[in-house]
Design a binder for these strands. Structure first.
Lengths: 184, 184
DNA sequence: TTGATCATGTAAGGGGTTACATGATTTA
DNA sequence: TAAATCATGTAACCCCTTACATGATCAA
């Protein structure tokens, strides 16, 4: 039940469904993803609940846009969510499930290859996040301790992604070292 | 699409739906959760697909049990999954969404309280995992480098949970320090 | 005798993905 | 002229959660 809240958070500034999708992909993707086929109906529902309202607006190119903006009730709804305790769901990690049963493959070779593949995945991710951090935040005025409040919180979430990916890399190394010692 | 594979992995040894639920809660919960209302129909589906078969068995207490065991096809299905690349889905973290829009609350006080609550959550989690590690693995013969292959891989997944939670704690501290410097 | 544990299920509903449908404009 | 981008949606399907239904046995 968080997508509606995230949309309300983003509707700080009026936007269309298409705009919001871009924001997900560009600036929130390290902790949330959303498809257009989910965003459009959710916006419609929020409008029925009077948490946003919309009006048609001409488009420079392509079909007419539907511009959404947050209502007062929408803002209050968002604030209520922000006052709630951290919403921590259980994170299902299928790749840990794969590793967990890797003994079925009969040795440690597949596990080692699997961990190397994982390590590569996370180093690529860290590199991507580092790049985002470099162009998005390190150039912002007042980095790091005098950013705007919005940028500060956004930067916190990016740091979380970086911290998590780096921890995963260190964990891969620990596991690979143990597999290696085991052979010797 | 991983629950069926996890069930196949656990059905190394014959078990009932109820047994499998307990295994989720006791030994896999740091990376996966499953409800009985999901496990039972999934087992039925696996049986229709001939990946497991079942027979009724009397119970020492309570109603009759349905004992499932993996078929040869089931084992091959599992092995195919283990040969696939790491299945990394996008992890949605609603609490990062909350933090991201916390500037709406108008200051840094709510963010600081929120981070302290998060930190507490993760320290509790690390303590619980450490305890599991102590009673489950450190007592096992050959710890840490001569565990059975099954235990070794299971321990890897637990270490991943510990690493992740510790990274989250360090991240909370980093954020709290920045909020603190900002006030000064 | 009340509640916990054992044991198996169904039903309703929300969240999310992939695929499909439509069509205008801009760029290569 | 073909492909990418802009723009909004619907349909089918899977995954998961919460709640409900049923009933036996055992320990306090």
């Amino acid at each position: 039940m968080s997508l509606p809240h995230l949309l309300l958070g983003m509707l700080d500034v009026p936007a269309t469904g298409y705009d919001l999708k871009r924001t997900f992909d560009r600036t929130l993707r390290h902790f949330w993803a959303a498809e257009l086929s989910q965003i459009y109906p959710t916006l419609q529902r929020l409008e029925r609940q009077k948490l946003v309202r919309s009006k048609r607006a001409p488009s420079a190119r392509g079909p007419a846009r539907r511009l959404y903006r947050r209502t007062g009730a929408g803002r209050r709804h968002l604030l209520a969510w922000l006052r709630e305790p951290p919403q921590i769901g259980d994170q299902r990690q299928a790749w840990l499930g794969q590793l967990c049963f890797m003994a079925e493959t009969g040795g440690t070779k597949r596990a080692a290859a699997f961990l190397i593949e994982l390590r590569h995945h996370f180093t690529t991710r860290v590199a991507a996040y580092d790049e985002v951090e470099r162009v998005w935040f390190r150039e912002a005025p007042g980095f790091p301790d005098d950013l705007s409040l919005d940028d500060l919180h956004a930067h916190f979430t990016l740091r979380a992604g970086i911290a998590r990916a780096n921890a995963a890399i260190a964990w891969c190394d620990e596991c690979l070292a143990r597999l290696h010692r085991r052979r010797a």
